[in-house]
Amino acid sequence: MNGRFVRPNPLPGFGPAFGVTLAWVALIVLIPLTALALRPWSLGITGVLASLESPRVLAALKLSFGASLAAAAINVPLGLLVAWVLVRGRFPGRQLADALVDLPFALPTAVAGIALTTLYAPNGWIGGLVAPFGIDLAYAMPGIMVALVFAGLPYVVRTVQPVLMDLPAEVEEVAATLGARPPQILVRVVLPAILPALLTGFGMAFARAVGEYGSVIFIAGNMPGLTEIAPLLIVIRLEQFDYAGAAVLALAMLMLSFTMLGAVNLLQQRLARRAR
């Protein structure tokens, strides 16, 4: 590991840390994903393409990625607001509100799905309010969106929160004394500083939403071509002992997510460098 590979740096410990990192990544992520990446090709290239191009598969992929992007986009302002209030706000029950943020994590996805469906089904507390107007929440697009926003919210809040805590008070203080109002402070001063973290949160919320299975399955309705998500199609293929077909879909989803995450990372690092 000489100058070529790693740029000289006065800090110690690159060797051992890198060794541990490599073993950790290889054993838990690389080897399994390699097995996944190699599995589809027993079908041949044409088989792989054929198993991807059915309208039903395309509809499911479109739904999964579209809804996840939208959910992540909703989560960014929502998560920022929550994180900001939790870090800066002084109000009774702040600790409790803070704990609530982690609830979507702590609940098994199946329980979350059951809970959301209980609430948004036509006989639920919220679903019942709009049912008389002929609006379906559960078993339709709104239900899927709610489940995905629910799953992704903690990711945005928890990535923004530490950076927000670390932000020096002086800048905001000066802005305030210069007459800036809180929304202006948020947009002009706070936002640029936390943009990298916000992007990271967006990426995580999106990634989590794309793969989400347990909770969506309860609330989505799962009608082919309409409310059927891509992970369900993978399960369906597995049910038919079609491992290769399942791996094709899995790999396609993985590559799409990988590209998206890579783009977000690139943007995030550029922003981080500029901020410094």
């Binding site: 793969g211 299975y213 597995l238 899995a250 995450l261």
Partner: peptide, 15 residues
């Protein structure tokens, strides 16, 4: 490396 580390997050739990 960073992208690989984050990858499991975007892998559907089923996978």
């Amino acid at each position: 490396l960073l992208t690989f580390i984050e990858l499991p997050l975007s892998v559907s739990p089923v996978i």
